[in-house]
Design a protein around this nucleic acid. Structure first.
Length: 402
DNA sequence: AATACGGGGAA
DNA sequence: TTCCCAGTATT
């Protein structure tokens, strides 16, 4: 039995004693964030979705613009998914945006007034809202208690209660412990926010500032003196103070290094660019990328044999862009192409153009592009060569899929 | 229980 | 470089 186990049962009083100092600290030091100035469930909902796996600093750049564009759940429900995706461009995890849009349609319940979920369970039935987000929205918007367990609260609570990481039943214990903060609690919403704030500001993963922590004197990990050293092999790791990699801590080995995928993107020597939406179920679904295909590379003079640009000829290599995803890299060779002899008409009137979108560089500003496509567009616009800055000559089918 | 999902910031 | 982040859904 680890030192923590026999004490956990007596921990009901621990949170009660820590609560006042925690809230006092929060009142004194909490950051002024836009979603903390409201009790509007919609505003809090949007913030919680954006904040999934995304830092406050990044979300701040998106949140206000999103709320201006879609001030109410009805506005969001009515909006085109393309505009929602455009507003999300660069935030990542685009499934969040699609789920948010779909869930808005459910809540807005047009016609008629919105039907707001009245409990954690009801929130959790909406797509994109799991137990933790449901708890956060509910507790913050109604100031009634519900536990949460995001990365911050997980770390704070794990340390506070001395729950070893990488052990069986860890998750259940963490949820139970997190729920303990709701005991006899006059300010449920602020408590959850304070716990998240504590994890974000002081109770950091690698170097917690225990000296400044308002609840350090009640903290199980402090009592054990474990905040000063890393977990060593053979003993349960207390909450991650820089866990060593490997199996010693019960964690999975780190994944193999990122591979590099190669691709070509094709830019017509004259006329607009061709964008294609990424297919259903694929990474970055629905976002537009500059037309092309996977390839180790093409050389000037070669005739393209694949896809829509089949029968076009490579004129020159313009430049390359690279992009890093979580699990791989992508290297994209951007090639200038012209229709091969006799293909000029077919090239424009191609069958696939119906489901693909042509857009000038300037028009592409309004489209939801992948990170790679955005880099290509930016680079093309910065080119001084006037031949590269093409404009529409013979307007092809209207931009689509955007 | 493991894995996919993106991107940016920080150490 | 590597790690981390106000997680969820799927398998």
């Amino acid at each position: 039995m680890s030192p923590s186990d026999d004490r956990l049962s007596s921990d009901t009083g621990r949170t009660r004693k820590a609560l006042a100092p925690l809230l006092a600290w929060y009142d004194r030091t909490s950051r002024d964030l836009p979603w903390r100035r409201t009790r509007d469930p919609y505003a809090i909902w949007v913030s919680e979705i954006m904040l999934q796996q995304t830092t406050v600093k990044t979300v701040l750049r998106y949140y206000e613009r999103f709320m201006e564009r879609f001030p109410t759940v009805e506005d969001l429900a009515r909006a085109e998914l393309a505009l929602v995706l455009k507003s999300w461009e660069g935030l990542g995890y685009y499934q969040r945006a699609r789920n948010l849009h779909r869930a808005a349609g459910i809540v807005a319940h047009d016609p008629g007034p919105p039907r707001w979920p009245q409990s954690v369970e009801e929130w959790q039935r909406l797509p994109g809202i799991g137990r933790s987000t449901a708890g956060a929205i509910h507790s913050i918007s109604t100031d009634r208690w519900a536990p949460i367990l995001d990365a911050n609260v997980r770390r704070v609570t794990g340390r506070f209660f001395g729950i070893p990481s990488g052990t069986k039943g860890e998750l259940n214990r963490l949820w139970e412990a997190s729920d303990g903060w709701g005991e006899d609690n006059p300010r449920p919403g602020d408590t959850n926010q304070a716990l998240m704030e504590l994890g974000a500001v002081l109770c950091l993963p690698a170097s917690p500032a225990c000296g400044e922590c308002p609840v350090a004197s009640f903290c199980q990990t402090i009592e054990c003196g474990r905040e000063e050293r890393v977990a060593s092999p053979g003993e349960p790791a207390f909450f991650p103070l820089q866990e060593p990699l490997g199996r010693s801590s019960g964690r999975r080995m780190k994944k193999s290094p990122a591979s590099t995928r190669k691709r070509v993107a094709l830019v017509p020597a004259s006329g607009p660019l061709l964008f294609e939406p990424r297919g259903e179920g694929r990474l970055l679904e629905g976002l537009l990328e500059v037309a092309g295909f996977p390839s180790a590379g093409l050389s000037p003079g070669e005739t393209v044999a694949e896809g829509f640009f089949s029968g076009w000829r490579v004129v020159e290599e313009l430049f390359s862009v690279r992009h890093v995803y979580s699990h791989f890299r992508e290297e994209v060779q951007v090639l200038r192409v012209i229709p091969a002899e006799g293909k000029e008409r077919e090239a424009i009137a191609g069958e696939k153009s119906i489901t693909e979108g042509w857009a000038t560089l300037s028009a592409s500003e309004g489209l939801a592009l992948t990170g790679v496509a955005r880099k290509i567009v930016r680079k093309l616009r910065s080119q001084e060569d006037p031949d590269v800055l093409t404009e529409i000559r013979d307007p092809p089918p209207a931009p689509e899929g955007a």
